[in-house]
Computed example of a mutant assay.
Amino acid sequence: MTDALKRLSDEGVAIWLDDLSRKRITSGNLAELIDQQHVVGVTTNPSIFQKAISAGDGYEQQVADLAARKVTVEEAIRMITTADVRDAADILRPVFDATGGQDGRVSIEVDPRLAHHTVPTIAEAKQLAWLVDRPNTLIKIPATKAGLPAITEVIGLGISVNVTLIFSLERYREVMDAYLAGLEKAKAAGLDLSLIRSVASFFVSRVDTEIDQRLEKLGTDEAKALKGKAALANARLAYQAYEEVFSSERWAALDKAGANKQRPLWASTGVKDPAYKDTLYVDDLVAPGTVNTMPEATLEATADHGQITGDTVRATYDAAKADLAAIGKLGISYDDVVQVLEDEGVEKFEASWNDLLKSTEAELERLAPSEG
């Protein structure tokens, strides 16, 4: 083992685990990762819960109790997932306290079927915050068009938010604007801005997957030479946008009132193409004030052979712009790519949620007590 994870933390990158299950909580594994692998947060999504609950480890008694109460499948899922998030939040509470609320966070997502509906998203976010009832929770809201006003409203209520499924630079700027507008609402309502936190989850590997596929189809040497460059370029330019927004006059007024910056979070950092080094989206996205949420395989790979050499973002903006421009010149539409990825992201989470509904319903029926 190298001490790459410590070096990454020392460079200002918060290491979060992109996974959660009851077994991980009860076995002591999560506590071990916090203690030994510099993990300071946890993210979840519908796919993660679908895998965990379908595997069944540790959920049977709770499901049996829920079946005895004849709850709906939607209520069962909410009770199961919020219990896991609450327990993980308690395990991470010392980190939360030690970092003044910056880390030690656990994220839980609103029902993905609400992704294109603003008012139900706001209501669901309020309900989740109430159900989990831990100060170190982040409510995940997708960065769809309908999600943007929901982000403003929820931040304005003093609820901390993880904005998810961000693929485009334009949408990322809209997300930061929604966050600042929410802080302004919270300030006008007399809330303590120092207690409100947010991260903006900018998805990485899926950008390469989609653009590489299109480059491969073109088949020219010029196209092939650009494979594996789009995702890093996109994320690095997102960091440039973050630096601009959080050095603006608008931000300065909120900063003075005690507000916290919305940190960029690198999501989807597991490498999909085996031709690329498995720590690519960790080693090459090192910048202060960021979060990298990793699947366990990526966390282990980074611990074993990650090459953390300092800031690998801030000196790269010109090269990043050139890479995206070169891809555009080949006829690959950036706007089309990011829209496809957003649509697919929502669809994938909806599909996972529907699978979760089906498997949980089957378990409720299987464990239902005989009448009497």
Rank of each mutant, 00 (worst) to 15 (best):
R7H: 09
E11F: 06
E11D: 12
L17K: 11
L20M: 05
S21G: 06
Q37M: 14
Q37N: 14
H38N: 15
F49V: 02
Q62R: 15
A64Q: 10
D65R: 15
A67P: 08
K70W: 00
I77P: 07
D84V: 03
V85F: 07
A88H: 05
A89I: 02
A98Y: 09
G100P: 05
Q102S: 14
E109T: 06
A115G: 05
P120H: 13
E124L: 04
Q127D: 05
L128A: 00
V132D: 00
R134N: 07
T137Y: 14
T137R: 14
K140E: 12
G147T: 13
G156M: 02
E170A: 15
R171T: 12
Y172A: 07
E174Q: 14
Y179F: 11
A188H: 07
G190K: 05
R197P: 00
V199P: 13
F203K: 06
S205L: 03
V207Q: 09
I211W: 09
D212A: 04
Q213R: 15
D221Q: 14
D221H: 13
A223F: 05
A225L: 02
L232S: 01
A233R: 00
N234T: 00
N234E: 04
V245G: 04
E249Q: 15
L254Q: 10
A259P: 01
N260H: 12
Q262M: 13
P264V: 05
W266S: 00
S268W: 11
V271C: 01
K272D: 00
T279D: 05
Y281R: 00
Y281F: 13
V282Y: 00
D284L: 04
P288M: 12
T290Y: 11
A297K: 12
D304P: 08
H305G: 03
G306E: 01
D318F: 11
D318E: 15
A319L: 10
I327Q: 03
Y334L: 04
V337P: 06
V338S: 09
D343T: 14
W353N: 10
D355V: 03
T360P: 14
L364Q: 08
S370M: 13
E371W: 10
